[in-house]
Design a protein around this nucleic acid. Structure first.
Lengths: 203, 203
DNA sequence: GTCTATATTGCGATAGAC
DNA sequence: GTCTATCGCAATATAGAC
């Protein structure tokens, strides 16, 4: 078991290169030659291992969605309180956009905004799954009386996800220009949660 | 002054075709041949009038941003109350995504999510401008005591924009699968505003 | 201002040697 | 499982006629 990272096979190296390059430039912005060079392998291996450029792209997107879904599910089945779970969701989203791999978050957001034709079903599947996980937790909170009764849980979930994700989408665009945004991610999340938790509170 | 719509010059016809096609397929998804055919002109005229495909794309994006900024500014300078203005902003966003030209909204969202290299400055400019307009109105509300004092107006603006826009981004992906979303746009906006207005309320 | 024709470049995929 | 070489195609841009 040589732990030499550079000795992973072409398949793995292509997945890693694809994750980085597709995230940075989008599907159509990267050529198979560029992917192969970055992975240090021959471009023909993309077809051999993944059936083509689209196949590699699908593998990249799927792997990232699975990673994210796993984190959301772990929170949902934990024994934390309702408010703690919401704070944990917010933390996953913040970390996903900042610490983990900011470009990958943008990749998923981009696919969400206008899915590649070949990936519409994949994106739909995971979107529905994540929305289901979060709205399920909120439904519990509504039924238990912790949250107000007059909001549909799915709408409550969309509102929360929107507040948090949209900021991080825009941050990439504005942080160089709007001084207000520099290094205040955590502070934004706290402000958004203040608004959301008060807004969802039962009277 | 013949009002014959089909007799507008190639420049206008290309802008119209570009708006529709770029919105439907993205920048890289459309070829100049396709643009020229849709406009009923020759592909060489794209270079002649706009300096190339990128120039036409920039003209399309700029025109759409100007249209949107105009609507936001009109609300900002109106004499409506604070809550009315927020409801009017929400209405502009909803109409922009549903009635006006849903695909164009997706075009702008897509550019926001990951700007084309050549358009980063354009996108930045308009993002900052719109954020400035909305946060300015919220700042007034905060100073007047109508809204809570412990939230930065720019964060409050981002939270509002996020709640509303994110739903409409996802709606395109999920409406075919999640029955909850079919025809409930107005209802979602009302729910989101309920959460937001209560969450921003001064105690 | 508009069109025809073409130059040039780069793409994704694959056949076949090793 | 990986590489070399190449095929066939579609892309944008432009030179030059009208």
């Amino acid at each position: 078991m040589a732990e030499e990272k550079t000795l992973q096979d072409a398949r793995e190296r292509l997945l890693a290169a694809g994750t980085e390059l597709f995230a940075a430039k989008g599907f159509t912005g990267v050529s198979i030659r560029e992917l192969a060079t970055a992975a240090g392998v021959n471009s023909a291996l993309i077809s051999y291992h993944y059936g083509g450029k689209e196949g590699l792209y699908e593998a990249v997107i799927t792997a990232q969605y699975e990673r994210l879904v796993g984190k959301f599910e772990a929170i949902a089945i934990s024994t934390a309180t309702m408010e703690e779970k919401i704070r944990m969701y917010a933390d996953v989203i913040r970390r996903n956009h900042t610490e983990d791999q900011p470009l990958v978050a943008r990749l998923i957001q981009g696919e969400l905004t206008s899915p590649t034709a070949c990936l519409e079903n994949v994106v739909r599947k995971y979107t529905v799954r994540i929305a289901g996980i979060i709205s399920g937790v909120l439904r519990q909170g509504i039924q238990s009386g912790a949250f107000r009764q007059d909001i549909d849980p799915i709408f409550a979930a969309m509102s929360l996800a929107g507040m948090l994700n949209f900021y991080f989408i825009l941050r990439e665009v504005t942080k160089a220009v709007v001084p207000e945004f520099a290094g205040r991610d955590q502070e934004f999340v706290e402000s958004a949660l203040k608004i959301y938790l008060k807004g969802m509170g039962a009277d």
